[in-house]
Simulated assay, not measured.
Amino acid sequence: MTNLQLPAIDPQDRIILFDAVCKLCNHWSRFILRFDRRERFKLCSVQSPQGQALLAHYDFPLDQYDTLLLIHNGTCLTRSDAIIAIMAAMPFPWSILALMRWLPKRLRDGGYHFIARNRYRLFGRYDHCALPPEGYQKRFLE
C-alpha cells in the first residue's frame, strides 16, 4: 500500500481514527455521534483507504491498531491525550472527564494500554467493519 492518497481535509477538522472491527471502538464512535451535537468531530475507520493514508502520513503501522488517534491542526494525538482532547470538546457533563489531564501521563496511558491490549477479549470484535449508523454518513471522512 505505497500508493495511498491523503484525503483532502481542512486543518481545522478534528478527525478521530478508530478500529472499525473493535466493538468498544464502535461504541465509542456512536458515543461521539450521539453527544457531539455541534458536529466538531469527523470519524474515520483505520481500515478505510482514507484511514490507511492518514496512518501512513503520521508514521503509524497500517496493520496494527493499538491506539485511538485524533488529528487536528496538523498534529496527531494518541492514547489518553487523544481521549482528553476529545472529552474537552464535548458538551457538559462529558467535558468534565477532561480533568483526567491532571493525572500522571504514565498512569493514564497505562490504563489506556491495558484496555487497548485486551479490548477484543473484553468487548469483542466484528467479522468485518461496521457501517456508519443510518443518517450519520456525512460525519465520516470520505
Rank of each mutant, 00 (worst) to 15 (best):
P91K: 11
D109W: 00
R106T: 13
F123E: 00
L99N: 12
Y120M: 02
P91D: 12
A89P: 00
M100H: 08
R125W: 03
L122C: 13
L122V: 11
R119P: 10
R108K: 11
Y126A: 07
L107M: 15
A116N: 08
K105C: 05
G111N: 13
R119H: 07
M100N: 14
D109T: 10
L122W: 15
L97C: 14
H128C: 02
I96N: 00
L97M: 15
H113K: 11
F92K: 11
R119Y: 02
H128A: 14
R106D: 05
P104E: 00
R101F: 09
G124C: 13
L99K: 01
R106W: 06
R101D: 10
H128K: 09
N118Q: 15
N118E: 10
L107D: 14
M100G: 15
P91H: 11
R106A: 14
R119T: 12
R117D: 09
L107R: 14
Y120K: 01
L103T: 08
W94D: 05
P104C: 03
L122I: 13
S95Y: 01
F114Y: 15
S95R: 12
G124W: 03
I115H: 07
M90I: 10
G111S: 07
Y126R: 13
S95I: 03
L99R: 03
Y112I: 05
H128L: 01
R106I: 08
N118S: 09
S95F: 06
A98D: 04
M90T: 08
M100W: 14
P93D: 05
R117C: 04
P93C: 09
P91C: 08
F114N: 07
A89M: 10
G111A: 13
G110H: 10
Y126C: 01
L97W: 13
R125D: 04
Y112L: 07
W102I: 15
L99I: 15
A98K: 10
F92I: 11
M90R: 06
A116W: 06
M100I: 02
G124V: 15
L97H: 03
R106Q: 07
I96W: 14
N118P: 12
G111K: 00
L103D: 05
P104D: 00
L97Q: 01
